[in-house]
Structures are given as C-alpha cells and as structure tokens.
Amino acid sequence: MANHDHDQQPSLGELVRQRREDLGLTVIDAAAAAGISRGTWINLEAGARKTLPHNYVGIEQALAWAPGSIRAIQRGGSPTPANARTTTDLDEIERMVRAYSANPNRSERVRGRADSLLELIRSLREAEQREARERGA
C-alpha cells in the first residue's frame, strides 16, 4: 500500500507556526500582534482547538497574510501574502529601533527615546487591529 502523506496539505496550525517562525516572531509577540491570548495562539498552532472566526483578522495581520487566507487554508488552499508594505516597513523600523534600545553603548537618553518609539509602534499596531475589527474584516 502506498504512503500518500507527502500529498497531504499542511494543517492550519503547521502553516501558522511556519509563517510565525519565518517572520521571526515569538508566540507571545505573534499573539499580541493578533490581539489574542498566548494560549489561544498555542492552541491554534497545535490544532488543539478551533480558533474562532472573529480572531482571523488579527491572526492574518500578525502573519502578514491577506484577509481570507485562513478560510482559504481551511478549504484546502494556501494563504496569500498581504500586499501592504506598511506591515513589512513597520517591522523593519521596529527591529532598528529595538537595536538602539538594547545597545548598551548608546546613552540612556537615546535608549529612552527608542523605548518611547517602541511604545508608539505597539500603540499603532493595536489601533490597526481595532480598526480592522470595526470594519468587520
């Protein structure tokens, strides 16, 4: 009897975990970006429990996937990368600012300004999440 495991589509959880790792996100960071709990994210990746549809928007945004990607995966398709450059640009800006914040060779004043920028980036991401939820995407 032939083994057809190689023909099987990866699960939603497997695709989510791989994308999170590809983006260099921790579970905590990904969950925060998606506006869900760490436990919900862990269950999503493990396939332990179905994720509720109202969480899809945040998860797709955290993974830089286009809206509807999770439903496409559930139907046997593949996720579509988001076309919005701002997500990628914002991630790059955050990485650069974190480097300033963590650099012990920078003055306390510079590190403090970097920390303030990181807080603004976090607030911006939260506002984007709220806006997407309000749109009902």
Score class of each variant (00 low, 15 high):
111 R>H: 11
135 R>Q: 14
126 E>W: 04
68 G>P: 03
88 T>S: 07
124 L>T: 08
35 G>M: 13
67 P>A: 07
98 R>A: 12
130 R>Y: 09
111 R>D: 12
34 A>R: 05
50 K>W: 05
21 E>G: 00
27 V>Y: 02
15 L>Q: 15
58 G>F: 05
70 I>T: 13
134 E>Q: 15
73 I>V: 15
59 I>F: 13
34 A>C: 07
87 T>L: 05
60 E>F: 07
42 I>E: 11
76 G>N: 11
101 S>L: 01
37 S>M: 05
113 R>F: 00
69 S>T: 09
9 Q>G: 02
39 G>D: 08
47 G>H: 02
34 A>F: 10
51 T>V: 15
113 R>W: 04
41 W>Y: 10
124 L>P: 00
46 A>F: 02
46 A>G: 12
44 L>H: 10
77 G>C: 13
101 S>P: 00
135 R>A: 13
73 I>S: 08
8 Q>I: 04
12 L>G: 14
106 R>V: 01
135 R>I: 03
112 G>A: 12
37 S>K: 03
88 T>C: 00
17 R>H: 05
1 M>V: 08
104 P>V: 11
53 P>M: 08
109 R>F: 10
50 K>T: 09
28 I>S: 10
70 I>L: 15
6 H>R: 14
92 E>G: 12
98 R>H: 06
97 V>T: 11
39 G>N: 10
66 A>Q: 15
87 T>K: 00
26 T>S: 15
40 T>N: 13
119 E>W: 01
60 E>D: 11
39 G>H: 03
96 M>W: 07
20 R>Q: 07
122 R>I: 04
108 E>W: 00
93 I>S: 04
40 T>V: 15
87 T>H: 10
25 L>N: 12
62 A>V: 05
63 L>G: 09
43 N>D: 15
125 R>W: 02
10 P>N: 02
4 H>T: 12
48 A>T: 09
124 L>M: 07
25 L>E: 08
14 E>T: 05
107 S>G: 09
8 Q>L: 11
91 D>Y: 10
45 E>P: 11
95 R>N: 14
28 I>A: 12
48 A>F: 00
53 P>T: 12
91 D>K: 14
39 G>Q: 10
47 G>A: 02
105 N>R: 10
63 L>F: 02
25 L>A: 09
67 P>Q: 03
46 A>T: 07
5 D>L: 11
10 P>V: 01
114 A>F: 06
101 S>I: 01
66 A>I: 06
69 S>E: 11
5 D>Y: 04
126 E>T: 11
114 A>W: 04
41 W>H: 05
105 N>I: 04
64 A>F: 03
129 Q>D: 08
21 E>K: 08
